[in-house]
């Protein structure tokens, strides 16, 4: 197959228009990067805000948002290509299967079967008892 026809076909294979110039490429990618950096810094800052158990939830939520941005804009999931969406979505569903059932077990396991060396369930720091080294 000749190069010319392949170039034509490569253009056709994209749902989103492929940027052809340096300017267009940068204009499309830089804002995404700025948002990503902003999210990363926000996540770092928010981690110092005492929110109890919500700290980790917020951090992971921001991580998921970053994943979504990278997936949509850098990994071209915006392309209306069913194959890519299939592959890109399947793993999420399957990780969901794994997580849902593992946590279902852990959340409902008999109290006796929880580990013996169990610390406080709450996210509060351990009370500083005399003689214990702090962290």
């Amino acid at each position: 197959m000749s190069g010319r026809s392949s170039r034509r076909s490569s253009k056709r294979s994209l749902g989103e228009a492929t940027p052809r110039s340096a300017g267009a490429i940068l204009a499309r990618s830089l804002p995404v990067w700025l948002v990503l950096v902003g999210l990363a810094l926000a996540s770092c800052a928010l981690a110092y805000l005492p929110m109890g158990r919500w700290n980790m939830a917020v951090s992971l939520g921001i991580a998921a948002a970053k994943m979504l941005l990278i997936g949509l804009f850098f990994m071209h999931l915006r392309r209306p290509d069913p194959l890519l969406r299939l592959a890109g979505g399947a793993w999420l569903l399957w990780v969901g299967f794994l997580a849902a059932l593992v946590f279902a077990d852990q959340a409902t396991r008999a109290p006796l079967t929880q580990p013996e060396h169990m610390e406080d369930r709450t996210m509060e720091p351990p009370e500083t008892a005399g003689g214990r080294s702090g962290f």
Binding site: A40, A47, Y48, N55, M56, L60, I62, I70, G71, P125
Partner: peptide
């Protein structure tokens, strides 16, 4: 490469940000 990046996006809060608010 993006996948490697995405993985790190999750490792960062789990390994570094946990317990910072204390």
């Amino acid at each position: 490469w993006h996948l490697i990046d995405v993985v790190w996006m999750f490792l960062y809060p789990l390994l570094y940000l946990d317990g910072r608010a204390a």
